[in-house]
Design a protein around this nucleic acid. Structure first.
Lengths: 139, 139
DNA sequence: CAGTATCCAACAAGATACTG
DNA sequence: CAGTATCTTGTTGGATACTG
């Protein structure tokens, strides 16, 4: 993915990590890439959340995938999992300071989507029109 | 992906597109999802670019994928492809106003990555440590 | 230079079933 | 409630070769 190595061997003194681009954007992208991660982060901005709440908020996500993405976000230090070790189980997820700042950086994207909602509708409608009209009979 | 259909058949009057979340974030995500799209957009913010420049800027991307993502961004109305119909061929890509505003909304993410560069290094190093040490000799 | 055309591998994600 | 364990699928993306 990132060829962090510059075997041309002389231009790597101006950047510490793979200078895949002129800014930190790709570093950020590696953290938030995952279908539901931005949504999870943004949702957690409102406060700590139990697993079930999260799952209801991020609709259409399966347990498997949600847990998986939560684990990765945890491992990356943007959120914290707290298991209260009660019965019935209670677990909640909270943003770390790092995670909070990341989630805040997502706000402009959210705002953009909201402001351009009309445009978005048009775009998605057009996309669906081009996607082969697979009737997609939902069973 | 988006189950925009509510076959329960009555709750779809309060939202025009799938209200997958409480804000426009997921709409935005559907535009910029694609491994290189955010990078492309952000790069184009500096001005129009010819195909070759883009390809050099977004390193490690193949022609196939680059073209594919450019086409999608074009179809979505965030950028414009201009073919000058010369020989040798000259084509350039420019952001539309919509695309420009989107690219600008990416700036905080870029800044976040830059500000937390040290953290990012740590994270990626740790990730690589856990990924099974598949030598992955690149070439 | 700016692509197109195939073919293929990888991984993310979904369905389903089961558990402490 | 909050997961885990498999299995399967589908979409992305990449390698390679070729073209106007």
């Amino acid at each position: 993915m990132s060829g962090a190595l510059s075997e041309t061997g002389e231009a790597s003194d101006d950047a510490l990590i793979a200078p895949a681009f002129t800014c930190g954007l790709d570093a950020t992208l590696r953290i938030i890439s995952g279908k539901w991660k931005p949504l999870i982060l943004y949702f957690l901005l409102r406060g700590p959340n139990r697993y079930g709440e999260l799952k209801r908020a991020v609709r259409d996500v399966s347990d498997k995938v949600l847990i998986q993405q939560l684990k990765e976000l945890d491992a990356d230090g943007v959120l914290l999992r707290t298991d209260y070790k009660e019965v019935p189980p209670r677990v909640d997820y909270t943003l770390t300071p790092l995670g909070r700042s990341l989630a805040q950086a997502l706000e402009p994207l959210c705002a953009w989507g909201t402001e351009n909602m009309a445009e978005m509708q048009r775009i998605f409608a057009e996309r669906d029109a081009w996607q082969r009209p697979r009737p997609a009979r939902p069973k």
